[in-house]
Design a protein around this nucleic acid. Structure first.
Lengths: 182, 182
DNA sequence: CGACCAATATATAGAAAGTATATATAACCC
DNA sequence: GGGTTATATATACTTTCTATATATTGGTCG
């Protein structure tokens, strides 16, 4: 139920409608977080039913598109949010990576193909690191906590690229052993 | 569809039934990966229907529990697996962390409570790092690729603890600014 | 002016991943 | 022979994620 509370948290900053929430997340947290309509609209509906946010339909004044539904956090919502904020996080970090999932099995495939996939990863993450470095100033403007998470993103990127390069080197050495069967 | 292929990969090592797969993953990959029966049994069923693995029921010879269904990878399964292995991973890494999700919003709550949660995280990850260091020898026996992923786990742990400590220090300093409203 | 396109906005279906729990069998032990 | 424990399979449910359907309006170009 983390997404529910994240949306509640965003409405702390200002009143928003669903479309604006997605835009906001992409603009401000795009490199570390993504959200989509399939998560936003059902959650807004649920939050509204629970009385944690309130909705008012906006009059059409010259803007494009269908009438907007503007959501605001309620007093009850603020209380519930702070309660959640100070709670110990339920479970630990989940890291799911289609590349690493393959990586453990590379022993069953072709080594050259594996090296090529690693090179592809190195290129991708170097691009990402460059983007993150460029965006650091913008994140700093969003306050201490957002900037710290951005720093974490950069540290992670650097660490991961280092690891990829070390791994590549080891794999490329001629005397690789096959994984044992158990 | 990563889990489907991971199970296929595990059956590369040896024939297994569902219960054994869970045991194997917990024993050998417990600190970096977890799987559960709700993922295992439906996937085994699906893989069987697609002809990527085959099933045979085992006779009861002195063991506990109901009759086992032993699964083996088929030739078709091996081909499909290698095809997947050499494919470029579809999407990039997903990192979801209930703690970090809260962290970005810490500006809206109590600073002392935030510091306490950070301390809790530091303790947890230091414990995890200790366990990972202790287990490194065992992972090394499972072959180059598994060991490299274990190394990544250790590097990640160290980096994350460093970041938590740096962040704690900055937050504890008296002159913290509130996040800006936008 | 009206057909068409692009942008805005909401909504829902459905797949994939993860959690929880139900059910069954047999060994082991008192 | 009844309760406990370990083994094993199965399914229901929740959460997260992806994809797509639908509606409205402004702009534009012939």
């Amino acid at each position: 139920m983390a997404i529910k509370y994240s949306i509640l948290g965003l409405l702390h900053y200002k009143d928003m409608h669903g479309y604006r929430i997605k835009e906001h997340v992409e603009r401000n947290f795009g490199h570390m977080w993504s959200i989509n309509y399939g998560q936003i609209y059902p959650n807004l509906k649920k939050l509204c039913e629970d009385g944690l946010i309130s909705m008012r339909e906006m009059p059409q004044n010259g803007e494009k598109g269908p009438p907007r539904k503007l959501y605001s956090i309620t007093e009850k919502g603020r209380e519930e949010f702070v309660r959640w904020l100070h709670d110990s996080p339920e479970r630990t970090m989940i890291m799911r990576d289609p590349f690493l999932m393959r990586f453990v099995f590379f022993g069953f495939g072709d080594r050259e193909k594996a090296l090529a996939l690693i090179d592809e990863q190195i290129r991708d993450y170097e691009k990402q690191l460059k983007r993150r470095d460029e965006n650091k100033k913008r994140w700093t403007e969003l306050g201490l906590y957002v900037r710290l998470v951005a720093d974490l993103g950069i540290s992670f990127n650097e660490m991961y690229i280092d690891w990829l390069k070390r791994a590549r080197e080891e794999i490329a050495r001629p005397n690789v052993k096959e994984p044992e069967t158990s």
